[in-house]
Design a protein around this nucleic acid. Structure first.
Lengths: 115, 115
DNA sequence: GCTTATGCTACGGTATGTGTAGCGCTTTCA
DNA sequence: TGAAAGCGCTACACATACCGTAGCATAAGC
């Protein structure tokens, strides 16, 4: 499966709008998850697999290839680590983490007290 | 396919960490795309489909259901629109748009001048 | 009553993800 | 120096998700 590239046709944009290319890449199963887990620190393939808890090696390897091609990840002596670009991307995901807790509360409130 | 719920086992977290539940939801094909396109303004099913350029009605409908269940989207007289929560989520995606343009430049520079 | 538009579903084919086993290689250490 | 353990990664069979097209049911306008 070709990795989505800005300027090339991608899901959501025949003209390859960068944001749609990024959504296409991160919107693959485990895309953001792998990035997120790796941001905890450089680590080996197997350790990363454990951090992800339930990912299969097949798909971990595929996502790693894609994210390396996109230059968010590189190989290093510890195994894999984020590039500067990757760290920057991770920074944009951090607010999502706060938001997700808020979201969890809203959902909980709705289901627990349908008053 | 069950929609990922914080607190329930999700991809990446057996204990259902909110951030992983959110990644699971948004990491489905077209998840973020639909949200992004809808943020341009409330619209009907068919108009939204056109905005997305290449989405099939089957999957648009499925994503809409999921995003409604997650309370990011509601029905309205124009068709569909974002909830307050959905608008908030969209705000977190805006920085990604800037980032994606930057990313596009990096990739372009790499491939055009491998000097 | 015919046209047009809407939301949405059916269905068959293809792409993508899952789970398990295990290969080839290097390191460790008795 | 050879067995054991760890590594990155692949093979393969199966399951699920997604795509593309056709088209149904309903409602409004003429």
């Amino acid at each position: 499966m070709a990795i989505p590239t800005p300027g090339q046709p991608v899901r959501g944009s025949r003209s390859g709008a960068p944001i749609m290319a990024l959504f296409d890449l991160l919107g693959r199963r485990w895309g953001m998850g792998v990035l997120w887990r790796l941001s905890e620190g450089p680590c080996s393939f197997r350790v990363l697999q454990e951090r992800c808890e339930t990912i299969s090696p097949t798909i971990l390897n595929r996502r790693l290839k894609e994210l390396r091609e996109a230059e968010f990840i590189v190989r290093c002596d510890q195994g894999y680590c984020l590039t500067d670009l990757g760290r920057e991307l991770h920074q944009m995901l951090v607010p999502l983490s706060c938001f997700s807790r808020q979201w969890a509360e809203v959902l909980r409130d709705e289901t627990e007290e349908p008053s």
